[in-house]
Design a protein around this nucleic acid. Structure first.
Length: 923
RNA sequence: GCGCCUGUGGCGAAAUUGGUAGACGCGCUAGACUUAGGAUCUAGUAACUCCGGUUGUGUAGGUUCGAGUCCUAUCAGGCGCACCA
């Protein structure tokens, strides 16, 4: 019987389905383990061979854990809302749901062929109303909450209202986007609309005027992580800055916890570092600068309070509220012109120009320490969204200020001894302070670090300002002017104020529209929906939620996917708790992985979930790049020359479909069929073959280097694909796909099969295993167990091959050895092992076998080999009984006949015995 | 500019605490066998060599009896953040 993978794989996939082998339920008698893949967006292109890399890794781990007796939750679903389906809908009029469902079907077919152990009864789709009901529900909870900074958690907005009624903002610990203060009387005197507007500064989900990334081509706003280098990540269209009224999530309130809790989770250092960067902690001080002659104050933020003596001007962000307050009548026109100019520049243009620009407001501020008057400027190098949108400029020690000062010819005062500021600023936080003492504050002679601390204390004590921590993390913009997303459970009342729908009205279904474009008046596509009104007749919100809305809590829904009373029941959440292993790409580091943590923490604050972090351990699989092949056409002919002969001709390299190339040798017949223009192609061969050139490029259709998992499964089978993807290298590493080499693992499977079967019958006996066989097996158990724990799957595959080679050399036919080998291999090659497991007479699935334990006794050597090194080189080996003392080993090494030969009479200066390894004799 | 990661044969890559560098696989070379296959099996495969050896983990130093591994500097490549005060 030959290894017929097509038959075997089909048979067991069917059997697993029929017997619901991968269905899991809560089972308090067993420990749980939750293994999750980042669910895919089902794109029209289908899966290529790079996508399943992480899925295979997590599948192996899930199966491994199950073999250890864990109740393993390993679900899969689809992130179904997204721009490509909608763009396609706009072009073709095809409803996005139709394309999405079609793509999902295709994904499912491809995934099923690889033999994953997903519990498909728990599948979720973000566009399913039963799913997005809970996305809408969570949004409502956020709308009804504010963030209490004293106890660091979200609380009901009613508590805040009660506080305002009694005390106003006095003693209020609520996180707010506004610095406005009011008394209880003022609050109580506010109109309903005024109160609503004020509360919007506190709600965790809020609607507010914010600077947004507006993408005109996509007709929607984008989140910061959806924009890279001034263009949209999807599509690459230019993005401009614009103030708009948008729904937002107050992610910034959670910045301290998002930063702090990174220390409690097992993620790679690089991803944590990326998140730390994105959250952007900086400790500094806020300080008030009085505007001369007005009595008004400018609040600024600085991390370099120590440089207060070097402040020679102030700068406001163009969007700062202060601009209007300080601009003088004479400068009004100039400032307005500048603001106008800035507004029309896109972020990209600003970045490309990198030129110093700004305008004087006409006003002066008073340096609170030196008492000197300094001019106030407006410039776009100061950002409205960070700190207070106003800075004190210290040109000598900050490069942006320096460039500005040079351009406008403003004074530059050096504050650090020995710092040369004639050419550039001295930005380093080191050195000894100078020019920095007067009656109020003395910093001269201190180091910069001491000066920073002293100034901060000074500011706090004198009431000039306060110590302040700032975060770079911005609130997430949560509305999209798009059709294919979750509708907001929000309507607008008579006053035009947003109001929440009652929870009983969820899910609010996405309505049908006749076209997916914005309306003629520029309103979002939902404005086309007939009767888009709430049950009270009021108009509903026209925006939909962004892509990350549905993916922020999907891991919770898998725990309890069919519950229509709650996102997840306490019972299910209490059992499955959090994702123990999350596998996915690094591209979500600043998007999904931040939003999910935020979302989870919000739910945690209300006790809806019991863990404050969603993903305990995160493993990032690398990207698989394409390996393109080239043929070389001789110029102006239809003649192609093989790779190593091409230098003799003038040739043009042409991409050729990698699927008609094998081990870089071109299948000439298939090439002639590939395209009509090559039908009569001629070839100059080497050694009877046409050898193609190659290059590593992105996997894409246009390079003809896309390899589908289906075609590999067709040729070699799913088990070979699984083993080979793991064998390719470390899971985390990015690497090119190279089908050359797959024969190696395929041969391993075939050879392993042939050890167990001779012809049609089992070639195994019930004799006990020999010590050598047991040693080989137990070495394998130990190695594979350790490797899987460390996600080092490539070395486990190598270990299987080594063990198989050894068993063959030992002519091993002991059934007990193979029985355990099969269990070890089962996570990697489940179809093969299921077949063998049954062939060996078992009835249940190999998934429920017991993972073998290794026995150190079998691994012990009766004798230990020591390599004797003389003059730094290995000279001869000695064999001593295992456990021999170092002194005895040394004696054995020196009395060995080799010693006489190599020492040539010299006396050793030193002898070093490394236990179980070597003896180093130094002359 | 700041931060993080990676540099090992023709190729993908191994190498617990520093302990015979290159496991395993591909490719290549030679041979065997044959029901001529998408085979299988055996041996070899870092480089140089006067066949004694010598040199080899990006480069240059250092620590050590001993360094791919630790330290310092430097080069190259990748990733993240970036008018963030």
């Amino acid at each position: 019987m030959d290894y017929n993978f097509r038959e075997i794989e089909q048979k067991w996939q069917q059997w697993w389905r029929d017997n619901q082998v991968y269905k899991v339920d809560i089972d308090p008698s067993r420990p749980k383990f939750y293994v999750l893949d980042m669910f895919p967006y089902p794109s029209g292109a289908g899966l290529h061979v790079g996508h399943p890399l992480g899925y295979i890794g997590s599948d192996i781990y899930a199966r491994y854990k199950r073999l250890h007796g864990f109740n393993v939750l390993h679900p899969m679903g689809y992130d179904a809302y997204g721009l490509p389906a909608e763009q396609y809908a706009i072009q073709t009029g095809q409803h996005p749901e139709v394309t999405t469902v079609k793509n999902i079907t295709r994904y499912r077919e491809q995934l099923d062929k690889i033999g994953f152990c997903y519990d498909w009864s728990r599948e979720v789709r973000t566009c399913d109303p039963q799913y997005y009901k809970w996305t809408q529900w969570a949004f409502l909870q956020m709308y009804k909450s504010y963030y209490n900074t004293a106890i660091e958690k979200a609380c009901p907005i009613e508590e805040l209202i009660a506080h305002f009624e009694q005390y106003g903002t006095d003693g209020c610990n609520a996180y707010s986007g506004s610095s406005a203060t009011f008394t209880a009387d003022e609050w109580n005197a506010m109109s309903k609309v005024e109160k609503e507007n004020t509360l919007m500064d506190y709600r965790i989900a809020y609607r507010g005027k914010t600077m947004v990334n507006w993408c005109p081509q996509l007709g929607t706003v984008l989140a910061n992580d959806e924009v890279s280098e001034g263009v949209s990540v999807r599509g690459g269209y230019p993005v401009e800055q614009k103030v708009m009224n948008q729904w937002c999530l107050r992610v910034s309130a959670y910045a301290p916890r998002l930063l702090r809790d990174l220390d409690t989770i097992e993620w790679t250092e690089s991803i944590k570092e990326t998140q730390r960067n994105w959250i952007g902690y900086s400790e500094g001080a806020e300080m008030n600068f009085e505007v001369a002659g007005t009595g008004k104050n400018l609040l600024i933020f600085t991390t370099r309070a120590d440089t207060i003596f070097g402040v020679t001007f102030m700068v406001l962000a163009p969007e700062s509220e202060y601009v209007d307050e300080v601009v003088t009548a004479e400068q009004r026109q100039a400032v307005d012109n500048y603001l106008d100019e800035v507004k029309h520049k896109t972020e990209r243009e600003r970045m490309i120009e990198k030129k110093v620009s700004g305008v004087f407001t006409g006003s002066y501020a008073i340096n609170p320490v030196t008492g000197k008057e300094i001019p106030i400027y407006v410039s776009d190098y100061v950002l409205a969204g960070y700190g207070t949108g106003a800075i004190m400029a210290v040109p000598a020690h900050y490069s942006r200020d320096y460039a500005f000062a040079r351009h406008f010819d403003l004074p530059i005062i050096p504050l650090v001894e020995g710092a040369d500021v004639t050419e550039e600023s001295f930005d380093a936080k080191e050195g000894i302070m100078m020019n920095s003492s007067n009656d109020l504050l003395q910093l001269n002679g201190l180091t910069v670090k001491e000066a920073i601390e002293k100034t901060k204390r000074f500011i706090a004590e004198t009431g000039l300002g306060r110590v302040k921590v700032n975060y770079r993390l911005r609130d997430a913009i949560f509305s999209r002017q798009r059709y294919w997303g979750e509708p907001f459970p929000i309507y607008y009342d008579q006053d035009g104020q947003p109001q929440p729908l009652d929870e009983s009205e969820l899910p609010l279904l996405l309505p049908e529209v006749d076209a997916f474009l914005p309306t003629e008046t520029g309103e979002p596509p939902l404005a086309r929906a007939k009767n888009w009104v709430a049950s009270n007749g009021r108009p509903l919100e026209l925006c939909t939620m962004p892509g990350f809305a549905g993916s922020s809590a999907y891991y919770l829904r898998y725990m309890d996917p069919h519950n229509d009373q709650a996102l997840v029941s306490h019972e299910a959440d209490g059992y499955w708790r959090q994702v123990d292993l999350y596998v996915g790409g690094t591209e979500h580091a600043t998007g999904h992985l931040i939003y999910s943590r935020f979302w989870n923490k919000f739910l945690y604050d209300y006790g809806y979930v019991c863990e404050s972090e969603p993903f305990r351990k995160l493993v990032n699989q690398g990207m698989i790049q394409g390996r393109s092949n080239f043929v070389y056409r001789i110029k102006d002919t239809n003649k192609f020359v093989s790779y190593n002969l091409k230098d003799q001709y003038e040739v043009t390299p042409i991409h050729v479909d990698v699927n008609i190339v094998s081990n870089d040798a071109l299948d000439i017949d298939k090439f002639r069929e590939w395209r009509p223009e090559y039908k009569n192609a001629e070839f100059i061969l080497e050694n009877g073959k046409y050898i193609c050139g190659w290059a590593i490029e992105k996997m894409s259709k246009s390079m003809f280097n896309v390899v589908n998992p289906d075609s590999i499964v067709e040729w070699y089978g799913a088990d070979t694909l699984r083993l080979y993807e793991m064998f390719l290298g470390p899971l985390e590493a990015s690497k090119p796909w190279d089908t050359n080499g797959i024969d190696g693992v395929h041969n391993f499977i075939k050879k392993f099969w042939n050890l167990i079967f001779k012809g049609d019958r089992l070639a195994l006996t019930d004799r006990p295993a020999t010590p050598d066989e047991l040693k080989s097996l137990h070495k394998l158990i130990k190695k594979v167990t350790g490797d899987i724990e460390n996600f080092s799957f490539n070395t486990s595959v190598a270990a299987f091959m080594i063990c198989r080679n050894e068993l063959q050399a030992l002519k091993c036919d002991a059934r007990e050895v193979y029985e355990q080998f099969i269990v070890l291999l089962a996570p990697f090659a489940p179809h093969l092992c299921e077949e063998l497991w049954h062939a060996l007479g078992h009835s249940g699935t190999v998934c429920d076998a017991q993972w073998p334990e290794w026995n150190e006794d079998y691994l012990k050597e009766s004798t230990t080999k020591y390599t004797v090194m003389i003059k730094g080189r290995p000279r001869y080996d000695i064999f001593v009984p295992a456990g021999t003392e170092a002194a005895e080993v040394e004696k054995a090494a020196l009395t060995h006949e080799g010693a006489a030969k190599w020492l040539e009479g010299a006396t050793p200066k030193k002898v070093i015995v490394v236990p179980n390894k070597l003896v180093n004799i130094v002359l």
